[in-house]
Design a protein around this nucleic acid. Structure first.
Length: 312
DNA sequence: TGTATTTGACCCGA
DNA sequence: TCGGGTCAAATACA
């Protein structure tokens, strides 16, 4: 993200961007701090680091609040290949309790569940299936009325071990050219990428903290060259191979041959691995926060290199 | 043998 | 009542 913007940009927007830039700068400081402390276990630096993190979070929160007040609908402008078509609802605090209560009764629980009414969701349409960096397990497939192709249902692999309630369904909406609509419901509460922060720190000799905090896609366009991905591959769970294309590109081959991991630089991953999503969600009004989070996350255009040509 | 996928059944919300 | 979403047994696979 650049510190310059069009004159026509509303002042509130400018202010929001300033906040984001500030967040990036603070993150840079944090990175430097952590880099210094890397290698030795000096816990006395945890306090300033924590303070910086808090400042980062505050900065993001401020920007989100500002954006929320600014009637922002720039999503369509910043979406490129992938675009969000909707983002609905807010977090339902009762979800987890519903989920646990649902799973504690007699054995044959087929069909015995409580459907989420308005869980937060957003959709994106892509010409191919993109990996989002999470481990998904397919739990269903359904033929949808008036739909040419069946809909595939996925839940987070960590639903049971970590209680992650994130689900998604993917539907092919066009055959030629292929077009897929992925609907994500809820956000991940699991921790798939425990090493992400340090991976970001190690990601590049250049000032690519922008990858994490400035929503700048420029530093991450070449995934093969970015050390982030190299190290990232070894840090996540194997189940991500779900969406590894069988006959696609070199990246897929590298990944599957080295570790069977499949990772994309998903913005959600970046945020959630730092706990930002949950923090922001708890800080903001649920609807507003979610909307803005979705906007921000889709403000980055990544190349969809991790693709699959057809459904599994 | 353990794990992932498939598939039919079932329930909820519109 | 119907369609969509989820569950879990059965099956496939590594």
């Amino acid at each position: 993200m650049e510190s310059t913007w069009p004159e026509s940009l509303p002042s509130s927007k400018k202010k929001a961007i300033e906040e984001l830039v500030q967040g990036r700068d603070i993150a840079n400081q944090l990175r430097s701090l952590l880099n210094k402390s890397a290698g030795d276990d000096n816990n006395n630096k945890a306090a300033p680091a924590e303070d910086l993190v808090l400042r980062i979070l505050k900065s993001f929160t401020n920007s989100l609040l500002i954006l929320n007040n600014a009637e922002s609908d720039e999503v369509s402008q910043i979406q490129a290949n992938t675009h969000v078509t909707s983002w609905n609802g807010g977090p339902k605090s009762s979800e987890s309790s519903e989920e646990t209560s649902r799973s504690t009764t007699h054995k044959d629980r087929r069909g015995c569940y409580k459907r989420r009414k308005t869980a937060q969701s957003w959709t994106k349409e892509t010409p191919n299936l993109t990996d989002d960096g999470y481990a998904w397990r397919k739990y269903g497939q359904k033929v949808i009325l008036n739909a040419k192709f069946p809909r595939h249902y996925y839940r987070c692999t960590h639903k049971h071990d970590q209680g992650c309630l994130a689900t998604k369904h993917v539907q092919r909406i066009h055959d030629d050219p292929p077009k897929y609509r992925s609907t994500y419901i809820g956000h991940h509460t699991c921790r798939n990428f425990l090493k992400v922060p340090e991976l970001f720190l190690d990601s590049s000799p250049s000032s690519d903290s922008s990858v994490l905090l400035s929503f700048d896609n420029s530093t991450i366009t070449n995934k093969q060259d970015n050390p982030f991905f190299t190290s990232f591959q070894s840090s996540i769970k194997q189940e991500c191979k779900e969406e590894i294309p069988s006959d696609h590109n070199d990246i897929a081959h590298i990944q599957s041959s080295s570790s069977d991991y499949l990772v994309s630089p998903d913005r959600t991953v970046a945020f959630e691995s730092l706990g930002l999503i949950s923090v922001l969600s708890s800080t903001l009004d649920s609807d507003n926060g979610d909307v803005i989070s979705g906007d921000l996350m889709d403000s980055v255009d990544f190349n969809d290199d991790f693709l699959i040509d057809d459904f599994p």
